[in-house]
């Protein structure tokens, strides 16, 4: 069975896409109304995301470690509840956290009537919900965290295809084989398809997350430089007529450019390890600091492998078509 890897690739993509879309996000609290409290009784309406409020719900305010329990809680539906508090005078901090059954909304309420502390209250123990298989719920990402399984594999696939191209180019220098040269060119062309897809999907995600289609970021500059390098590679190919000379010049440029590109993508960002918005760069933590990151990884790695196999399949088809074209022209 020579084609097992094609089936494997499609199977992995199917699994990763379905699981990446269907697995729910972890419950979180996303909204409170009103968003400020003053001493005295107050009704706070809490909106949750993917929560299942109901039954015995315990709500409390926490300010610098000092808690105030809700005097009564009315559950409206699975994602809405209203809690009544008797806010005392003397909270220490400007911002008060709100907790519902172990879910914390940090800095939820702007607080008035500050002082040096309140009389301690002991609230009933909050029952944590059982941990289900969920994706992390991060404040600016929310549902778009699923894009991890669709946008990021584009770049992995591109780098693998460029790696295949360099491998073929090294073989060209050793053998002067035009067939290898064609394979190197086609790998670059398919790699550029994934580069374009990665750029567009990245721009959409960036607009929804950071508010701009393009930001001055180490990773984005790397992507732009990669695109420029390989377009330049194709321009170089276009400007040489003699096939053998073209094969050798293109191979030399490809190897030189790939090594510098790897340096640029993986070494220079370590040097300039500031000002990146991407997770894992600069001051930003990677996704891996989340307690549930393994749940993302279980889907992410199959997605990456699936896309790499699909890219390789596309490259294989393209090389075979190009080989036929040369054979027909003769």
């Amino acid at each position: 069975m020579r084609n097992w890897w094609k089936f494997l690739g499609i199977g992995l993509l199917l699994f990763a896409s379905i699981a990446g879309l269907l697995i729910p996000l972890a419950p979180a609290l996303v909204h409170v109304s009103p968003d400020r409290i003053a001493p005295g009784p107050v009704d706070v309406t809490v909106t949750g995301y993917n929560t299942a409020f109901g039954g015995d719900v315990k709500v409390r305010l926490v300010n610098e470690g000092q808690a105030v329990c809700a005097s009564s809680v009315a559950v409206l539906d699975g994602t809405h509840l209203t809690a009544r508090f008797d806010v005392p005078v003397g909270f220490k901090a400007n911002l008060t956290d709100l907790e519902v059954n172990g879910l914390v909304y940090q800095g939820a309420l702007f607080t008035e009537g500050l002082g040096t502390g309140i009389a301690a209250q002991t609230c009933p123990e909050q029952t944590m919900p059982a941990k289900a298989f969920v994706f992390p719920n991060r404040s600016i990402l929310y549902e778009s965290i699923r894009n991890l399984h669709f946008h990021v594999p584009m770049w992995f696939t591109m780098i693998v295809l460029m790696g295949i191209s360099v491998f073929q180019s090294i073989k060209v220098l050793g053998s002067n084989s035009l067939d290898r040269d064609r394979a190197a060119e086609m790998a670059v062309r398919i790699g550029l398809v994934f580069c374009v897809l990665g750029l567009i999907t990245g721009a959409l995600w960036a607009r929804a997350t950071w508010g701009a289609f393009w930001t001055n970021d180490v990773k984005l500059n790397g992507a732009a430089v990669t695109g420029l390098i390989y377009v330049a590679y194709l321009v170089l190919r276009g400007s040489v007529q003699d096939a053998h000379k073209r094969a050798r010049l293109a191979a030399i440029y490809n190897i030189f450019a790939f090594v510098l590109l790897v340096l640029f993508l993986f070494v220079v960002p370590r040097l300039n390890a500031i000002d990146s918005l991407h997770p894992g760069n600069g001051g930003n933590s990677g996704f891996s600091d989340l307690d549930l990151d393994d749940r993302l990884r279980v889907i992410f790695y199959p997605a990456v492998l699936g896309w790499i196999l699909l890219g390789t399949w596309m490259y294989d088809l393209r090389v075979r078509a190009a080989r036929l074209e040369t054979a027909m022209d003769r």
């Binding site: 500059n221 430089v225 420029l228 390098i229 330049a232 321009v235 170089l236 400007s239 440029y253 030189f256 450019a257 510098l260 340096l263 640029f264 220079v268 040097l271 300039n272």
Partner: peptide, 16 residues
């Protein structure tokens, strides 16, 4: 051609 080929390759150095 020199400008097209060279510019993206000089960028890592230039930024550093």
């Amino acid at each position: 051609l020199m400008a097209i080929l060279g510019f993206p390759l000089v960028l890592p150095l230039l930024l550093t």
